[in-house]
């Protein structure tokens, strides 16, 4: 949609949406929210950027390969972290434990924070891919 008003407001609002998404991802282990909700918000901000900037040919392009690589690397990261936790829990190995930290701080809750970040990246790009799948044109 070609609309100057929309574009100007988008310039202001989109960074805030992204910061809000990152906030939700990073605070996922302390309050409601987490990787899934935060990732959705981030993905929506990408979609909004694409919608607003498309007619002006000024949007930041993300290549299909980059999306694929980000998603796969996050999936592998998630799999490794969660697999480590599963195996040490199930096999009752006494390997090194991630320190839990002080409850209430950002750096606490053991593996939850990195897992949330991984989920956030996956969900963000998946939502964005879902949108581009049904929109003509490339990612």
């Amino acid at each position: 949609m070609k609309d100057a008003l929309l574009r100007e407001i988008g310039k202001v609002v989109i960074p805030f949406i992204q910061i809000f998404g990152i906030y939700i991802i990073l605070n996922g282990h302390l309050s409601p929210g987490g990787g899934f909700s935060g990732g959705t918000i981030l993905g929506v901000s990408l979609i909004m950027h694409k919608l607003i900037e498309e007619p002006y040919k000024s949007r930041i392009k993300i290549s299909e390969r980059a999306v694929m690589q980000f998603t796969c690397v996050s999936l592998i990261l998630y799999g490794l972290l969660k697999g480590y936790s599963f195996i040490t829990g199930g096999g009752e190995f006494e390997l090194l434990d991630i320190p839990l930290g002080i409850p209430g701080r950002i750096l606490s809750g053991g593996m939850l924070l990195p897992l949330n970040v991984a989920v956030g990246i996956i969900v963000c790009f998946t939502i964005y891919t879902f949108y581009t799948l049904f929109d003509k044109g490339e990612i």
């Binding site: 796969c72 690397v73 999936l75 799999g79 697999g83 195996i87 199930g90």
Partner: peptide
Amino acid sequence: AAAANFPLLIILILFLSSFMMPV
């Protein structure tokens, strides 16, 4: 005794290797 972990390991290996492929 480690063999008890193998079923879980099988699933993990298959998932991880299949996500490595697109990269």
